[in-house]
Design a protein around this nucleic acid. Structure first.
Lengths: 226, 226
DNA sequence: CTTTAGTGTTCTCTCCTGCTTTACACTAAC
DNA sequence: GTTAGTGTAAAGCAGGAGAGAACACTAAAG
């Protein structure tokens, strides 16, 4: 019932894009998948649609994920990271210019005004991934955790570079010292704060892609509990 | 043609698992998706299969990815990380015991004998992700890159904590200093080495899940080129 | 005990659509 | 010209997606 205007029809376009991307003819793909060429032609133009097994085979043969078939092809994939990286690989672009290497003093910081300083460690936003350095300035009042518990989708990985960071994950509390690392499912309510008088530096990686089965649901908004 | 014994039939099982996971009845799901309850029942038991739009709606309503529908439900998800993390969230297990926090001196090191020292920063291997600290000892001979170029699947993120690391990605060369970060698609041949007389410490995150469209193909083996 | 509402399942039947086949229009090479 | 390649159009069959009713069961109320 509910659904928007046949969201899934885009998968035809996506198949065509993927197929042309690897320069495979309609007939060749047909042979591999085990259907007729004309049928593929029709599916790609939205005049027909594959059976589930056929679709699965198509994704396999084209070496793409199921999900990618249902993404919106109109908006350029990720952010042309791929193109620049390819150019760099071919030597047409320096590692810096391609956005592969990001110098310390060039970091785009996502100032969240309140709370710790986040600095993205990738030159462009990755999709589904965040690689960041977070600096927790000394707490105003050393004792209480200032921020609300937070939970979101994905999986979070971190390591303390410098300073001591207080952490709460679920009902558990601990203190992380330099070199200590942490990883957990972001759906567990958690928070971090600096209870010391020295700044804390940490490297974080947040992967929405690596969400555990349990927290596989939609919605990437941060939501505060309590 | 070619395909193994109906790989895709598993998606029935997966739907059931997902549906029961959110405690939704067959009829409720049927109502949301816009098909009959009986049909869902049959699909879940492998007696029938959904049309593409129906399948898409099912994934949407259950809040799961398309791909997850085609994974093998028999092999236990990840490696029981989830259970322990849940216990920790409930306060039944300390963050250390649950494997959420990993102390610096407890790291399992994956000694590759030859080459740099890798230390995993997660207490258990994650699936599809590696979060590691790598230490590149001073090069034997300062000049030439000692290791072969390497390429594999996924996407790689790194930041230099200490020392200066020489890098080649594709045709591009550069020198990374502390605080510099790097991210690129692992399908581009690459290598790192320490050309200085001081050790280099770097934090790496390698995500197989975040492979770019271009390198979305199968196969996770490391392979050496040249 | 009976009723009621909920669960999942098993039928039978219809009609839609996935898919094949054959044929067409076009381009590039020989 | 022929030949081989591309993608497309039209006609038709048949399998299966899906509907709808009835069945068997459980748990809570009356």
């Amino acid at each position: 019932m509910s659904e928007e205007l046949q969201e899934w029809r885009k998968c035809g376009e996506n198949i065509r894009i993927a197929r042309e991307g690897v320069e495979m003819s309609v007939r060749e793909l047909a042979r591999r998948v085990g259907v007729s060429a004309s049928h593929i032609s029709q599916v790609e133009r939205g005049l027909a649609s594959f059976s589930v097994p056929a679709l699965y085979n198509v994704a396999s043969e084209l070496g793409i994920s199921m999900d990618s078939l249902f993404e919106d092809p109109s908006q350029p994939k990720s952010q042309s990271n791929a193109e620049d990286e390819q150019k760099a690989a071919d030597g047409q672009l320096s590692l810096d210019d391609a956005g592969i290497v990001l110098r310390k003093d060039r970091r785009p910081s996502l100032d969240l005004t309140k709370g710790p300083t986040w600095e993205r460690l990738t030159s462009r936003p990755e999709n589904g991934s965040e690689f960041i350095e977070v600096i927790y300035e000394p707490g105003i009042d050393g004792a209480n955790p200032p921020s609300d518990l937070v939970q979101h989708t994905g999986r979070e990985y971190g390591i303390i570079i410098e300073g001591e960071l207080s952490v709460q994950v679920g009902m558990g509390f601990t203190l992380l010292k330099p070199g200590d690392s942490i990883s957990f499912d972001c759906s567990i309510p958690h928070r971090f704060w600096n209870a010391t008088s020295a700044p804390v530096r940490a490297i974080w990686f947040i992967s929405e892609l690596a969400a555990s089965e349990a927290s596989h649901r939609q919605g990437s908004e941060y939501l505060h509990v309590y």
